[in-house]
Simulated scan of single mutants.
Amino acid sequence: MTNGRINPANVPDIALKDGQSIPQVGLGVLRIDDEGVVPVVESALEAGYRHIDGAAGYNNEAGVGRALAASGYNIGAKRETLWVTTKLRDSEQGYDSALKAFDNSLKLLQLDYVDMYMIHWPTPFDWRSTDTWKAFVKLRDEGLARTLGVCNFMPADLKRLHEETGAWPAVNQIELHPTWQQREVVAFCKEHGIAVEAYSPMARGADLNAGDGTIEKIAAAHGVSPA
């Protein structure tokens, strides 16, 4: 990164077991309102980001869609350079409801497909991930969602999904940062070929000063900022 810009060619791609590859660095749009997210996404694309991570539950898919359309990243050759993730609301899990929810997300995002569709939470108290996953497979088979993933799934949730569907997700997105490394979950995912995607990788900034300046020392040794 130079002058606040990212050279997409310098951002590694992580190969997934389904044959897709995901840019390692992405922009998450949690806690940005629908109007405010438009300039954020536009600025990120201009700065070089090629990975946008959103969700229906963030209530800003329409804003993300407006930003993608305004910048030309919703169609054509520019669209092919971009990775867009969205996630299913917990309240809309289930087969028919997931398909309906996806159609709405696609319309709001102004896209013909998403690169990854994810189950946002496992909801073990009201397990519907099995029927939801069957809907996800239909979307993948139709070319509407290229990669299927989950968020916040623990090993027990992943095992149950596999037992009932025969499938492991390509990605498990979990909170992961230096002071919360979730090593058991990471090890389980690695064992089963599931790529781990971190959200809040700096603990919303809290980890920048954690460990008695450890991160600052590492950053100084490499001539980079703590972030």
Score class of each variant (00 low, 15 high):
G4C: 08
R5G: 11
D13S: 15
I14M: 09
L16H: 06
K17F: 14
K17I: 12
G19Q: 05
Q20V: 12
S21W: 04
I22R: 05
P23Y: 05
V25D: 07
G26L: 02
L30A: 14
G36E: 12
V40E: 09
V41W: 08
G48H: 11
G48N: 01
Y49F: 13
I52A: 01
I52D: 00
D53I: 01
A55P: 06
G57W: 10
G57S: 11
N59L: 15
G65R: 00
G65M: 00
G76Q: 07
A77G: 09
K78L: 12
R79N: 01
T81K: 08
V84H: 03
V84L: 09
R89T: 13
S91K: 11
E92C: 11
E92S: 12
Q93N: 10
G94I: 06
Y95G: 08
A98Q: 06
A101D: 11
A101E: 09
F102N: 00
D103F: 10
L109C: 03
D115R: 00
M116I: 15
I119L: 01
H120M: 01
T123A: 15
R128N: 15
S129E: 15
T132N: 08
W133M: 11
A135W: 06
A135K: 08
R140E: 02
L144E: 12
T147A: 01
V150T: 09
N152I: 00
F153S: 08
P155I: 06
K159E: 15
E163G: 12
E164G: 04
T165A: 11
T165L: 07
G166D: 00
W168N: 04
A170Q: 03
V171K: 01
N172W: 01
N172Y: 02
H177E: 01
W180S: 12
Q182E: 07
R183G: 12
E184W: 04
V185F: 04
V185W: 05
V186D: 08
F188C: 08
C189G: 00
I194H: 02
E197A: 14
Y199L: 07
D207W: 12
D212P: 06
G213V: 03
T214W: 13
I215M: 09
K217C: 04
I218Y: 13
A219S: 09
A219Y: 04
V224M: 05
P226W: 00
